[in-house]
Design a protein around this nucleic acid. Structure first.
Lengths: 246, 246
DNA sequence: AAGATTCTGTTTCCGTCGGACACACTTTAG
DNA sequence: CTAAAGTGTGTCCGACGGAAACAGAATCTT
């Protein structure tokens, strides 16, 4: 019974052992339950104890299926991301600007996926094993970039850039989801401006201008505008490079 | 003795109380020591106990200076970022493309600052009090954007975009710093490709192309190229917008 | 000068966490 | 029918963040 590595858990489905009692649990029950727990109460409130209680088992029984908490969260990440939707761009499509609509759709879709599980951002950090779903998203974006004339490094860097922007936005918006956190922010901002005095004129100018501009439409989806803004700039910049190559 | 809030700790320097023994410790000693600890051993290894041992005090004595660990890390973040270097762009400079060199310098500088303290990335998440130094970096970038004709929202979104890119890169590179983590990555990648078979042709193509391209120059600062790539694309895209406005 | 007050650092204690380990039980292989 | 392998459980450990009570030091008031 060599404990399985994270890669084996993510990619391989090792066969059920023949001897011994049949397992009453399974990764297919554990991981979604953990995701539900974290969706509801945040990553900080995930503990083996609480997860086991939800499943009606003892804490240590979970360690029969998962070597440790790190491996569990790695599985949660890949399951929560899910597979990418069907093909953003037909593989051979070299229509003028097809890459553009493909990448935009990709970015907006993965943004929604991240937004559904904001804790996933915290788990996608540093060098770590990549799961099949995460790889699938990567593949999808790379497919959209075929026929652009970009080199392999450039295509990879493009994905890093787009993905980084999306993740950065999710990180800033997710915690802003419930309650009056917008009010909290303005309260913090006001409290700070009192103490700060006039050391940050450009900041004050920018926020003042923004406040007056968004005063009329009272819908507060400014963050989503930030998402679109970033995607637009990135795609514009990419178009410049692609045009230069052609 | 109302326990100070995070904002008060970051911005205000409340006067020393008159009565009682003089404090043997201070935030000026505690916070740098905590930064040194985390720089050396990572954010996960920061505990009040270990920090107190370094300082030659008991754990609970720290709570006389800091309400809790969250407030401590907030202070660490602002101190570690430090103030931005002197003015990237002279405030009134409306030279053609001055914003461009200013923003590039800003991004590269804050990248180095983040790289020196990679754990800072993990702390800059969600809605939270902003410290004076962090606000200073924001101010610096906004100064560089004066005279571009962009609205306040656009200027703010630009900073979010650039900052998000830099942070995303640091997050991917920092853990790659020591040892043969590049070898670990290729090992993980190979192990995965064996299991994955041929489900990701575009991924394989991109990496193969990259490997052959970077085979000749043996310096492996590919990540830094990813930083430059992203900055270039963002600035190119921004130039398109600015030109459209003019 | 002498309490009274206020702040200091320390000690003790608690609940929770991830995880090691030994155990009893159940299923299958020989 | 016995041995082996695998199951879930109970117990135990060290480390964590933090609450509470406490004794000593420095200042204020009388």
């Amino acid at each position: 019974m060599p404990t399985p590595t994270t890669v084996e858990l993510l990619w391989g489905t090792q066969p059920r052992p023949k001897r011994g009692p049949k397992p009453a649990l399974s990764l297919e029950r554990i991981v979604p339950e953990a995701i539900a727990l974290v969706d509801a109460e945040g990553l900080a409130n995930l503990s083996m104890q609480r997860l086991a209680e939800r499943l009606g088992f003892t804490k240590m029984s979970l360690y029969r299926y998962v070597p440790g908490k790190a491996e569990l969260t790695a599985l949660m990440l890949d399951v929560a991301m899910g597979p990418p939707p069907d093909m953003f761009v037909k593989p051979g499509d070299s229509t003028e600007g097809a890459w553009r609509t493909g990448l935009r759709l990709w970015a907006e879709t993965i943004f929604e996926r991240y937004s559904a599980h904001p804790w996933a951002i915290e788990l996608t950090t540093g060098v770590r094993p990549i799961g099949p779903n995460e790889m699938g998203w990567m593949e999808a974006a790379l497919v959209a970039l075929t026929g652009t004339g970009l080199t392999g490094s450039e295509r990879l860097d493009t994905i890093v850039l787009l993905n980084g922007h999306v993740r950065s936005l999710v990180q800033q918006i997710s915690s802003l989801g419930g309650g009056d956190s917008a009010g909290q922010f303005t309260a913090l901002f006001a409290e700070m401006m009192i103490a700060a005095g006039d050391r940050y004129p450009a900041v004050i100018a920018a926020f003042a201008e923004e406040a007056s501009a968004t005063a009329l439409p009272p819908d507060a989806d400014g963050p989503n505008d930030a998402l679109k803004f970033g995607i637009d700039r990135i795609l514009d910049g990419l178009a410049v490079l692609i045009a230069r190559r052609a």
